[in-house]
Amino acid sequence: MSGRQEAKLAVNPIACSGHGVCAELLPELITLDEWGYPLLADIPVPAHLARQARRTVTDCPALALLLTKPT
C-alpha cells in the first residue's frame, strides 16, 4: 500500500462553465467560489466518497470534472 496515490478531483477550467451541479452532488469535497466556479478539496478522494465522486464526474454537464487516475 505504500506509495500508492489515491484519485484526486480535478477540473478542466476551459470546459467548466460554472453549472454548479458538482457542488450539489459532492458538497463534502466541492464548493463554489463567489463566481460559481468549483473549488476542489486538494485531498485524495476518501474511499467512502469514491462512488459518489465517480457519479459526480459523470453528471457534469460540461464533462469538465475529472478524477486523476490513482497510481
Partner: peptide
C-alpha cells in the same frame, strides 16, 4: 435548459441533468 445553466423550480440543478 442545461446549456443555460438553468434549473427547474423545486428541483436542485442536478435534477435537470438526471
Amino acid at each position: 435548459l442545461m446549456s443555460r445553466q438553468g434549473k427547474l423550480p423545486g428541483l436542485p440543478k442536478f435534477g435537470v441533468v438526471h
